[in-house]
Design a protein around this nucleic acid. Structure first.
Lengths: 216, 216
DNA sequence: TTTGGTGTTATTGTCGACAATCTTTAGGTT
DNA sequence: AACCTAAAGATTGTCGACAATAACACCAAA
């Protein structure tokens, strides 16, 4: 693993968790000192951060961390609904019985840990992401996998971590996950598609509420 | 405009048109000499080429131009159907009457030039791409625009330029374009979505035929 | 002959310094 | 006082060289 990869992971985590605040300016020399490396691997990392929409660069003018907005959230989740719906249809055709069984085991595991850590949202985040990851990987479509897992999901996590995902929504999401994997196990891609779109739509509305509440 | 941007455009064109053959290995020193610049901006360009799926990089091992395959084509066009279908639905809501009129004027212009250059596919390519670009931009969804215009379309062009787009399909595509913009003008997003999916599906089958024919 | 190890070679990753560009600030003019 | 201009400062883009890693060839042993 290269130095650019390491610093990329660190900066990704820092931006997603708000350690580097949204909307703040990125200074290459400052970050280079902070992570104790040259600007070459740092610029490589910045290029990848731009790729996953965590920063915005203007030639000869610098880079800024993205700002979270209601319009951005809606645009992002419009795409998610469409792409993850497609992922469900493909997964219903492509996933092996073994892979489906693994996801079901994963969900059971989430359910038990969720009871213990009621209200603590971070682990739920990771679990939720993990579920979506599995379905997307199950589509076996490399371009779809790349877009969702490598380019869009860090921004999704940023919205969820910074704006929170709490209330009764947390426990309800598990049931929705169960229903989706059940439809996939039945090889009913259409139903899985529909359920996933509703699932993502509900998640969007939940974050939207937080967003309008906070900035009001 | 920076030097990395210039060399990026040149290499993109070279790969899309097969000047740098599909599947060939990329040598950083060689390309640096060939385009007469340092490796720093070249690596920046390579990073963006990877982003639009024209090359594949392995850490510490180099980069290769992608190889065109039937599976790759199908995966790519599955995504296109979904994303451009969404673009049509959004465009039917978001495009202004002026923008719609512009696209119609564009189509009329294509029709007249197409009659003149019957069979010459390259201009048709540009025209077809232009039409799709307009619809995508009309969706006003920045993430959707980024994915389709910046990341996927160079690969689409590569398939079409290298595997050809000929026969009666060329003229038929114009009628399909007409029908799509007509549906958008009527603010019928559902219909535009359906027509676009069929349009892209037909285009895929056409290239698929060429692909199976060539490698057989 | 095939397989495993080793040395060589070439490529990629990284570094520090220089050049080009933009932002900011100070100054002068209307 | 407001606005345009210009110089200073800082930041980004680019360069050539060095270090680390991986591919390759060669040789030895089974």
């Amino acid at each position: 693993m290269t130095a650019a990869d390491r610093v990329l992971l660190e900066i990704q985590r820092a931006i997603v968790e708000g350690d580097i605040p949204a909307g703040s300016k990125i200074s290459e020399p400052e970050l280079a000192r902070r992570f104790d490396l040259s600007r070459a691997p740092l610029r490589e990392a910045l290029a990848r951060l731009e790729r996953c929409h965590l920063i915005e660069r203007i030639p000869n003018a610098g880079a800024r961390v993205v700002t979270l907005s209601k319009e951005g959230l809606i645009s992002l989740y419009q795409l998610r609904e469409e792409l993850e719906g497609l992922a469900c249809r493909l997964a219903a055709e492509q996933m092996t019985d073994a892979e489906i069984a693994e996801v079901r085991a994963l969900l059971d595991q989430h359910l038990s840990t969720q009871r213990v850590r009621e209200g603590e949202s971070y682990y739920q985040e990771a679990g939720d992401l993990d579920f979506h990851y599995r379905i997307i990987l199950g589509s076996k479509n490399p371009y779809l996998i790349n877009i969702l897992c490598d380019e869009l999901y860090f921004l999704v996590r940023m919205y969820r971590v910074q704006l929170g995902m709490n209330g009764p929504r947390v426990s309800r999401a598990f049931d929705e996950h169960k229903a989706i994997i059940h439809a996939i196990a039945n090889r009913d891609g259409e139903l899985a598609d529909l359920l996933m779109r509703r699932h993502i739509g509900a998640s969007r509305r939940n974050i939207e509420l937080q967003l309008t509440g906070n900035q009001a």
